[in-house]
Amino acid sequence: MKRFLARNAPGYIFLTPWFLGFFLLALGPILASLYLSFTRYDMVSDPRWVGLKNYDYMFTRDRRFWKALNVTFTYVFLSVPARLAMALGVAMLLDKGLRSIGVYRAIFYLPSLLGASIAIAILWRELFEIDGVINGILGLFGIEGIGWISQPSTSLYTLVILAMWQFGSPMLIFLAGLRGIPRDLYEAAEIDGTSKPRQFFRITLPLLAPVIFFNLVLQTIESFKTFSSAFIISNGTGAPADSLLFYTVYLFNEAFKFFRMGYASALAWVLLIIIAFFTAISFLTSKYWVHYENDRD
């Protein structure tokens, strides 16, 4: 033990700030929230142990929980493919070897930097409101607009479009991936008379599969956790008619509006399990499409 310490003490001393951060700021709250999820806790009185009651209520009686799940799933399943497709499309355009590509890259990345910010969410509201910019443009063509955000049937889709617009970070990763595919392969394909779509589907996509996979996992997680845009656009309520009741918005309201900390903790753990589940599915299926071991035609 003495020798172990003598040899490794300096290392551990250097690790101390990280250990402190991890245990006090990450692991501690995580475990605390797990405990709180089995209690009733309003931040004033002490937490009271209620066993599985929170979870029981969530799954059997809480209709808003199911509504929030529905909204979030719809959003994830629409926005992730849309954003990835957009990101790949723009990355392929930039990969064509444009001049001053750095400038374009920065410009295209900008929405993602701003995307999570309050300002963009407010801008989005201005764009899509009944007297917003979109309706103004539609009006020029004689089309009468609707309140895109105030109508439950369209409000979620405006957020999907916002998500699509924030394609910056997956786009950069796609661009790096595209750069990694040797030019020779395309030249060989060119000489062999391979059409552009066939080059895309038979060369680009398969060779990009690991990058697509990485982006898919990251964006799915990101998408499940979407909060600020939904919170701002729905004025923090999930309105209209709970059509923007994202899971995180619901969780936030339970925690910080109604001070049902125990229940909110339970909601957080369920979200964690959902995200873990989808990540696991991505990893499990990846061996069938990332390396194309079952490639057949």
Binding site: D184, L185, E187, I191, R202, L207
Partner: peptide, 11 residues
């Protein structure tokens, strides 16, 4: 054409 790098499709 035969390329220096062979340019075989790795997948």
């Amino acid at each position: 054409m035969v390329f220096q790098s062979y340019a075989l499709y790795p997948h």
